[in-house]
Design a protein around this nucleic acid. Structure first.
Lengths: 149, 149
DNA sequence: ATCTTTGCAAACGGTTTGCATACAG
DNA sequence: CTGTATGCAAACCGTTTGCAAAGAT
């Protein structure tokens, strides 16, 4: 847990290394995102943080997330929903999304990581990452109702 | 090419089977999307079609795409860009996206299609599709400039 | 004749931006 | 002190929606 520690000291250092000033808002936004397991939207983060930082504004959450994305500390997930979702850049992992409730679960797929990409992809340019997105309907939604997808 | 023929007759039948009225606009929007190889945005489709259908409105393009997505004839791609991109539902394939120019290339990966998903995913619920997205910078962008990503 | 689809224009909603103040370095 | 970050409010822009006219069945 050390390399991704959410201690104030560690976060402070991480920001400094990126040449970013260390502000209370940034620390808390990043920390909240690290601890969240649900790929929150900017607004969800905002609501969760308002209790702790009553003067926080939604724009700051957006601006901070954009800044952290630019510096590679946060990943903006591609999603079909209208709102963007965010994730701290941690260990390589993939996503499975429920079409009904939009919940995103992480999973690991070591077998895929070993599978070589097709040649046409290798020659396409510089590759930065392979991401798998599985779509479906989660067990909870399947149990909860009987509506068609 | 027969099953995905872009002939008027075939498209007409496809719409009828979905209980959709067959309009000039729908035929042309769907046909344009089928022939496009670049996963166009609604606005790109609109601009390409305006020559042929001068009275076409952008709203109709949006509405038609939404309708076709609902009926499973079109897929809305998840993308980090602000504008949505669309694709006709054809053979299973994956996407590679250039972070710089946002161009999306299709590729096939038979090896992956044979690789079993991890057990935790199988037990998650009902799975509808596995989609791989590779990120990187395409050769053209790499050649064209030397800016950092 | 009936009911869906279209075009227009206006609304919507998530995100971004300009500006003055607050604050980190 | 200097310059970046924040909060506020307003703008932005892709997308959606209400309505009357046009068109498909």
């Amino acid at each position: 847990m050390t390399p991704l520690s959410n201690s104030i000291d560690h976060l402070t250092q991480t920001f400094r290394e990126s040449g970013l000033r260390v502000t209370h808002q940034r620390l808390e936004i990043y920390r909240e995102l690290m601890e969240a397991r649900d790929h929150p939207t900017a607004e969800q983060l905002y609501r969760r943080l308002r209790g702790r930082i009553p003067t926080l504004s939604l724009d700051t959450v957006y601006r901070t997330l954009t800044t952290l994305v630019t510096h590679g500390m946060v990943k903006r997930l591609e999603t079909v929903e209208s709102q963007a979702r965010f994730d701290t850049t941690r260990q390589r992992h993939h996503h499975i999304i429920c079409k009904r409730c939009n919940e995103i679960m992480d999973f690991h797929w070591p077998l895929l990581d070993e599978t070589p990409l097709p040649g046409e992809v290798d020659s396409w340019g510089r590759l930065d990452g392979v991401n798998v997105v599985v779509y479906g309907v989660c067990a909870r939604c399947l149990a909860g109702d009987a509506q068609p997808t």
